[in-house]
Structures are given as C-alpha cells and as structure tokens.
C-alpha cells in the first residue's frame, strides 16, 4: 500500500491539539479556580511598582528594521540549505563548491553591512528623544 505524503503528517495533528490545549487549558483552569476580586489598584499594569507612562504599543526605533531585513535575507538563504542537505550525499564535492560560492556571496553582503556601520547601534540624541515623545526640542 502506498503511503501518501500527507499521511506522514498525521502525527502533527495531536501535536497541534496539545499545543493549543496547554496554554488554553492553563488559562481556563486559572479562570475557574481563581478568586475574583478586582479593585482599581490591582487592575493597574504590572510594571514593578512604577506607574507606566503612555501606551504599551509605542513607536519603536526604526533602526530595528535593518535587523529584520538582514534576517529575511539569511532566512531565504536557509531555505536553499534544505534541498542542498538532502542531495548532498549524491552530488558530493560539486555541491559543496556550489554552496560555498552561494554563501560567500552572502558573506560579502554581511561584511558590507558591517563595514557600513549598520550593525552598530546609533543612540538617539536628546533632541530626537524629545521630538519622539511628542514634545518640542529646545
């Protein structure tokens, strides 16, 4: 009997169900068992005793975006490593050379980004911070 490919993925189903049940079950159980006595003090955002200022969904520094972009590039590179790893025993040394060229090209990209100072964190000046908070710089 031919085993269809998707049948190999049947074990994934209980895995997903358990993965959903653990957090959901934990929250439902806690909701059933806990004492419900909310008062204003208790409903404040937990911030180590400090009153939080502003919204949690603030605007983050755009500098993080370059890390996201770098991540995407190297993520796509990883995609090509999968089929490479599978066929590598049958193609041998040629595949190794091909992959070294491929990775070398991306190492060039990484060195370029590094040399351009992209990986350095640029702290905001005081003026920029004031503007970001919605105030006016002096």
């Amino acid at each position: 009997m031919v085993v269809e490919l998707y049948e190999q993925y049947v074990p994934v189903i209980p895995f997903i169900i358990i993965g959903v049940l653990i957090p959901a079950g934990g929250m439902i159980l806690a909701w059933l068992m806990r004492v419900k006595n909310p008062y204003p003090e208790k409903l404040t955002t937990y911030e180590c005793g400090e009153e939080p200022i502003g919204q949690a969904q603030m605007q983050f520094d755009v500098q993080y975006y370059i890390y996201a972009l770098l991540f995407v590039v190297f993520d796509v590179e990883t995609v090509f490593l999968y089929p490479w790893a599978v066929v590598f025993p049958d193609i041998g040394i040629l595949a190794v050379i091909e992959m070294i060229i491929f990775i070398a090209m991306l190492v060039v990209a990484l060195i370029y980004a590094w040399k351009k100072g992209i990986l350095e964190w640029m702290p905001l000046t005081w003026r920029e911070m004031v503007i970001r908070e919605g105030g006016r710089a002096r």
Partner: peptide, 12 residues
C-alpha cells in the same frame, strides 16, 4: 545569491 546581495545592499 546575487539577488539576495543586491537586496541587502539596497536595504543598507
């Protein structure tokens, strides 16, 4: 890989 290189340089 060249396309990825170009993408990264563009992003930088």
């Amino acid at each position: 890989s060249l396309a990825l290189l170009a993408a990264l340089i563009g992003a930088v």
